[in-house]
Design a protein around this nucleic acid. Structure first.
Length: 301
DNA sequence: TAGTCGTGGCT
DNA sequence: TAGCCAAGACT
């Protein structure tokens, strides 16, 4: 259905094939040697890498992922631990609730699925911390299956190549899904190759701020480039406020608890933030989330 | 659907 | 420098 925008004609089948082929060749030459892409990586390893990578630069994930997999090589291993151990190992990756969800995910796999990471999209989607993107990524990267792996990179790449606009929206729309669906090859192998190579193109070349069009393998096919790279389609992506927010406050308190060997007194934690009522509110939310626990007046993970 | 949820590097 | 941005999920 028309959405009010002047959406151009879809690419032809042969145009899409040409783009995917060029992208695949480029990936073969420039794709990064990330540890979870190496042969022998288990589906669990892929799943962990995907959760850690949510809203997080890959460069910061490599270290924690390596330590994590060394310590908990299977879902059963992690499920045997207390959730706090996962939060501690998460370190400063950010969005620490992901650590809790990953632990819950391991518990579900160990308890309900015989310790086996499912290869089915819907089964993956039912796991804690696994949304559409991550479920598709595991299907594709871990099992070589056919799934539309639609993250911010791929949405941006398709928006520029076919739609001809500079930026995609801040969240995945129905139009995005339909577009990605049209680009998804029929075979498992080709779909998996397109998923990893299109994501990598978005991460390394077709970047949000300063795209490297002179190095782009599909520049000849890109409608945005052909149009002179107009700053169109740019959503007013409000900058994430940070200073003085609850998120910062939670981060300060959690960091304090994380670094304390024998726990932290409630009063000490609250004193780490200049606004008392906000600190109390944030501590309460951390306790409610299960990121922090309180015994008597001592806080721990 | 829009708001919330960490952290650090880069421009 | 201040803001932008990074393999999203959840409510």
């Amino acid at each position: 259905m028309p959405d009010g925008s002047n959406r151009p004609e879809p690419f032809t089948v042969s145009e899409r094939e040409a783009v995917r082929a060029a992208c695949s060749v480029w990936f073969g030459e420039h794709g990064r040697d990330l540890p979870w892409r190496r042969p022998g990586t288990t589906p669990w390893g892929v799943l962990v890498s995907e959760v850690m990578s949510q809203q997080t630069p890959m460069s910061r994930v490599v270290g924690p992922w390596t330590e994590w997999m060394d310590r908990w090589p299977t879902p059963d291993d992690l499920a045997e631990e207390a959730p706090g151990a996962a939060v501690a190992a998460w370190g400063r990756l950010g969005y620490p609730r992901r650590a809790l969800r990953l632990h819950a995910c391991a518990t579900a796999i160990a308890g309900d699925l015989g310790g086996v990471v499912p290869s089915d999209f819907q089964a993956l989607l039912a796991l804690p911390g696994v949304g559409e993107y991550t479920a598709a990524a595991v299907v594709s990267f871990a099992f070589g299956g056919r799934a539309a792996v639609l993250d911010t990179n791929v949405r941006r790449v398709l928006a520029r190549i076919e739609t001809g606009v500079a930026n995609c929206g801040s969240s995945t729309s129905r139009a995005d899904r339909e577009l990605a669906s049209r680009w998804l090859p029929d075979s498992d192998a080709q779909a998996a190759r397109w998923a990893v190579s299109s994501m990598e193109l978005g991460a390394l070349v077709c970047t949000a701020r300063t795209p490297l069009c002179d190095r782009c393998p599909v520049a000849d096919h890109c409608r945005w480039l052909a149009a002179g790279r107009p700053m169109t389609g740019a959503p007013v992506r409000r900058g994430q406020a940070w200073k003085g927010t609850d998120r910062q406050c939670r981060g300060v308190i959690l960091d304090l608890v994380r670094n304390a060997e024998r726990g932290v007194e409630v009063e000490v934690a609250l004193a780490a933030w200049p606004v008392r009522h906000q600190a109390e509110k944030c501590l309460a939310s951390l306790l409610a989330d299960g990121l922090v626990h309180k015994k008597d007046s001592t806080l721990s993970l």
